[in-house]
Design a protein around this nucleic acid. Structure first.
Length: 501
RNA sequence: GGCCCGUUCGUAUAGCGGUUAGUACACGGCCCUUUCACGGCUGAAACACGGGUUCGAUUCCCGUACGGGUCACCA
């Protein structure tokens, strides 16, 4: 049987970066096995539905290069792929369970449920729940007569369908990441399968869809582990074989306790979403990896290694290489802390892989001209983490320095420099404008200074200061070329006047 | 609190009974360099604790501690 996996997000907001990783692992597994990757929108909660969220999910996956074989947009043999459009299917299957005595109608109001829980709590019951014991005290088709039930339903009384979870049963399953997990059915409550609004709950819809869509492997976050036994029970109730399960370790906060949340991004000054997202409700903007300057391949690589590793020392992986190397049995069990520092390092690695032309195109708007863009890329490529830094790190190449670093002035602008600066200006003056390039400048300048018995090393930092206002930065000769002869001479002149007065 | 899951340098991890416990990020030093980065070299830094099993436990088992997840007519 060929592998079929699904990514099944709920369109309640922007896709969290942890969700992206889940999608990635599903995708890698599917591709590595020559299987199919499905996207299924789990929009059974009408109250939490957020318009635009579905589009965001599609956009985010597309940006990262995660391709969907079957889904709402691309379609497929098991369409529709949106649960809200499959209501009739769930109803049919829920009814089947009712008919077979494996599920029942329940008419309890939220208030009555609340009262029941409070009473159990007062009686010091560890885990108050609607289960094999307590259901006998509630209003449902087990305690009520068939006539009463039929009457209530005919009257249109709100009701749900609950799964009749056996009192004594052991559920064990082999998780592909965690090995055997054993849970006793007494710890599981009679979960609602169909809500009063006619929508299925996650649990029902999930099992029915995974079965009908012939999903072979359910790869999802660890937060689902506690409900996995319930899902197994559901498969049993239907008489279906359950798919394999793999529960992924969670992404944790960079520091402190708990799983990574939106708030951590704000606090720690980094994105936790793939794409920027504006909340339609309040206009709040959440940062995205993309808009923050992360390359999709770097984001992907970073995410892939958060919870999985190939067992070798290779760290840089293209998507194709990830597909070739990925395997579920090398996924870690414990939660992984989100370290944006490492993400930046990946970005730096990938940025260098990008062609000069590519990067030049990216900075063209800031650079002004293709020539200058190319020069800037040459100057900055190996020094930056983000493409935007190619221009932002060298503001003085766009504007004359407004001040000179006082510390450098104090330590480097000595008598020797005062003497040398006009000489440097003079030397540069002698280079024809058309020859004013970095190698020419370097050769002429250093040769001349040497001839005059001036040690270049002693004055270069001061020279840099005169040109940029700073004591550090990228290659000076290249910057002189970028600025041009006229600009350079002006800056030297200005520096002499300003610093020495 | 009940149930479930986890625990190797600060972080991500390698390790699958015998290792000087490896690597990467971050951090320190040195080198390179006109400076800063890059790069190279190098340093500091970890098996949560207690019992077993074993000739021998980071590795297997059981406890404890700590951490996490989950307990809805949300997914």
């Amino acid at each position: 049987m060929s592998v079929r996996v699904r990514f099944a997000p709920s369109p309640t907001g922007p896709l969290h970066i942890g969700g992206v990783r889940t999608a990635l692992y599903n995708y890698l597994f599917a591709r590595s096995k020559g299987g199919k990757m499905l996207l299924r929108i789990e929009d059974t909660d009408q109250a939490r539905y957020v318009p635009g969220a579905e589009q965001y999910i599609q956009d985010a996956l597309k940006w990262l290069g995660i391709e969907i074989d079957e889904g709402p947009v691309v379609g497929g043999p098991h369409a529709p792929y949106k649960q809200s459009e499959r209501k009739a299917i769930y109803k049919e299957y829920a009814q089947k369970l009712i008919d077979e005595g494996k599920a029942y109608f329940a008419f309890d109001t939220p208030e009555e449920l609340d009262t029941m829980r409070k009473e159990l709590e007062a009686a010091k019951v560890d885990n108050p729940s609607y289960n094999a014991v307590t259901r006998m005290q509630m209003k449902n088709s087990i305690t009520l007569s068939a006539d009463e039930v039929a009457q209530k339903i005919a009257n249109g009384e709100p009701h749900v369908i609950r799964l009749k979870v056996p009192l004594k049963d052991e559920i064990r399953f082999k998780d592909l990441v965690r090995d055997w997990v054993v849970v006793h059915s007494s710890t599981i409550d009679d979960k609602v399968l169909m809500k009063a609004d006619g929508m299925p709950t996650y649990h029902l819809a999930n099992i029915v869809d995974d079965h009908l869509m012939e999903i072979t492997h359910v790869i999802r976050g660890e937060e689902w582990l506690p409900s996995a036994p319930l899902h197994i029970l559901l498969y049993r109730a239907f008489g279906w074989q359950h798919p394999e399960f793999a529960h992924l370790p969670l992404l944790l906060k960079p520091e402190g306790n708990g799983k990574l949340s939106k708030r951590d991004g704000v606090l720690g000054d980094f994105p936790v979403f793939p794409l920027q997202y504006t909340d339609p409700a309040n206009g709040e903007v959440a940062r995205g990896f993309k808009e923050d300057g992360f390359l999709p391949e770097a984001t992907l690589n970073f995410l892939a290694l958060l919870g999985w590793n190939p067992g070798t020392e290779q760290e840089i992986f293209s998507l194709e290489q990830l597909i070739d190397t990925f395997s579920l049995d090398r996924i870690n069990k414990s939660g992984a802390r989100f370290d944006i520092q490492k993400a930046k390092w990946f970005n730096q690695q990938y940025l260098r892989e990008r062609s000069n032309e590519d990067l030049a195109g990216a900075v063209l708007p800031e650079a002004g001209s293709p020539e200058k863009a190319a020069q800037l890329v040459k100057l900055m490529k190996d020094r930056v983490t983000f493409a935007s830094e190619i221009t932002s790190e060298v503001p003085y190449l766009f504007k004359k320095p407004k001040s000179y670093d006082p510390e450098i002035v104090a330590s480097k602008w000595n008598d020797q420099v005062k003497e040398a600066m006009p000489i440097i200006a003079n030397i540069l003056e002698g280079i024809p404008s058309e020859d004013f390039n970095s190698t020419q400048i370097h050769d002429v300048l250093f040769q001349s200074l040497t001839d005059m018995g001036i040690k270049a090393g002693k004055i270069m930092q001061a020279f840099r200061l005169a040109i940029t206002g700073e004591g550090k930065g990228p290659d000076l000769m290249l910057m002189l070329e970028i600025l041009g002869k006229k600009e350079v001479l002006e800056r030297i002149e200005t520096a002499i006047q300003v610093i020495q007065n």
